[in-house]
Design a protein around this nucleic acid. Structure first.
Length: 457
RNA sequence: GUGGAUGUAGUUCAGUUGGUUAGAAUGCUAGAUUGUGAUUCUGGAGGUCGCGGGUUCGAGCCCCGUCAUUCACCCCA
């Protein structure tokens, strides 16, 4: 028989992995709720018309499309079929696709439910998304995103709170060595004006975003190929190579952007965000104003964020920014500004695994296993089991009458810290043996003593 | 979409210039112990060497194809 396999880029999550994933998910969910965000879920599939055109040409190609049900070729024009050009007929044979991110479905939801949403609307969403690219390290075809977005306000308090939420989430995850990079599309636009990028803005942004990865020379090389002149390149690197404190960068750019309206706006926004952070009584630790941060998604218009964990070779674990026009793509006449952040659970997992940051406890399943020497003691154990569960102690009984070694092995494998041993002596004396599986120590206690021992009361 | 690497036991891997019956560790399983494990000892099961073809007297090893996994590019969480 053929061995079953998984589709490329997808994974099963066994109990040990799930325990750790849920630790991450619960931590992030807790942070979102603490900051006043409410949950939202949207369908796995969306109409293709909802998804296409929102992520650029590259993004459209990475959409998973769902074949129409039934006789999907029936109504396709024969001449189109004869061309054998699959792009021509995709719109005829597929009208649904899997969601590519959580922001676009959220925008769709806001437009559809505008009448019952109170602005500003703060929602969080934790669901898998799908992308049809080729998997590699830290890149999957199915992965989870944890998004928190606010729509309906231009307030930069939202930007500041994004920084706070990132800090708070990383604190509860135990990640200490990381950098929140922050920049502004206005600043990038200002740079583009200065180097006369004109129509080539996006290739300029893509190239400078790679600066810390491939280095100055390679970026220059790429930009020359894209048709940028030496004069522009000199100006560009004068700006993005500027080193200094946030304060110094702001002053430097204010000077350079004297004639750029967009650039000035970017500086003013960022300045304000840093002022607000101060009002929150938080430090600027981990926060870095990075002039070369660009981010690919074209819908960002204001501040942009990206979070990297240091000393781990993995892409960014979190990213986000402000977008002014997203709901307009769905025919909203009202201009709703939104700003959001997304955590990539799978990358956080990989990074935390590599840095050995998962607490030992997350693996524990039950607290107690009830083991027994014979059938009468197994039956007696059932009553004990129920008593423990009534007190909220996660517990289980070994369901077969087998030798004690096997029951202990089971407890060890499931990392159950305590085993209660029941035999004829225990039944007679009403004193059960409780064993600490780590130290091997054991003592006899009554059920009520065991309960107060395990619950710590 | 483009390029590289790797496919041998459940798992991690050895396997000589191509030579007889493909090994180890670990895990699994049964027993030294009829009330005590992770750390003793002994036995047992488990492999169409990814798949298909070719070269050869002979292929796990060489050649071609194919599939899978993985890394990088593009792009992205």
């Amino acid at each position: 028989m053929e061995k079953p396999t998984l589709p490329k880029g997808t994974r099963d999550f066994g109990p040990a992995v799930m325990a750790k994933r849920q630790f991450i998910l619960n931590s992030i969910r807790g942070v979102f709720q603490l900051h006043g965000f409410q949950p939202l879920e949207t369908p796995t599939m969306e109409n293709l018309s909802t998804l296409t055109g929102k992520y650029g040409d590259e993004g459209d190609q990475l959409l998973f499309k769902i074949l129409n049900s039934g006789d999907y070729l029936k109504d396709v024009d024969q001449s189109k079929l004869n061309t054998k050009d699959s792009k021509l007929i995709t719109s005829d044979i597929s009208e649904k696709g899997l969601r590519y991110d959580l922001t676009v479905p959220f925008a769709r939801y806001v437009v559809m439910n505008r009448h019952e949403i109170t602005l500003p609307f703060k929602r969080y969403q934790i669901q898998p998304v799908w992308r049809a690219d080729r998997p590699q390290k830290g890149r999957y075809r199915e992965f989870y995103q944890c998004d928190a977005d606010v729509v309906g306000t231009d307030s930069l308090i939202c930007e500041a709170e994004i920084v706070l939420m990132i800090k708070s989430a990383f604190k509860s995850l135990g990640i200490t060595d990381y950098t929140i990079k922050i920049n502004h599309r206005g600043i990038l636009a200002g740079i583009a004006e200065l180097v006369a990028a004109n129509e080539k803005e996006s290739s300029l942004f893509v190239a400078i975003d790679k600066l810390d990865k491939i280095g100055e020379e390679k970026v220059k090389e790429e930009l020359r190929i894209r048709g940028f002149g030496e004069k522009g390149l000199t100006t560009l690197f004068e700006i993005i190579n500027f080193k200094g404190t946030t304060q110094e960068k702001v002053e430097f750019l204010t000077f350079r952007f004297a004639t750029s309206e967009k650039g000035q706006k970017g500086i003013a926004d960022l300045k304000q965000v840093f002022v607000l952070l101060k009002s929150y009584n938080t430090t600027e630790d981990h926060v870095e104003f990075d002039i070369s941060l660009a981010r690919g998604l074209s819908y960002y218009t204001g501040c942009i964020f990206e979070v990297k964990i240091n000393n781990v070779v993995i892409g960014s674990v979190s990213g986000g920014g402000r977008y002014d026009n997203l709901t307009q793509a769905f025919g909203s006449k009202e201009k709703l500004s939104g700003v959001g952040i997304s955590f990539g659970v799978d990358r956080l997992y990989d990074a935390m695994e590599e840095l050995k940051l998962f607490p030992q406890e997350v693996n524990a399943s039950s607290t107690v296993l009830i083991s027994h020497f014979d059938e009468p003691s197994m039956n007696y154990g059932l009553g004990v089991l129920q008593t423990l569960r009534d007190k909220g102690i996660a517990s289980e009984i070994y369901p077969d009458s087998v030798k004690i070694q096997k029951q202990f092995d089971y407890a060890n494998k499931k990392m159950i810290p305590y085993v209660i041993v029941i035999g004829s002596e225990e039944i007679k004396s009403q004193q059960l043996t409780i064993k600490n599986m780590k130290t091997g120590e054991q003592e006899k206690k009554s059920i009520s003593e065991i309960i107060s021992f395990l619950t710590g009361n």
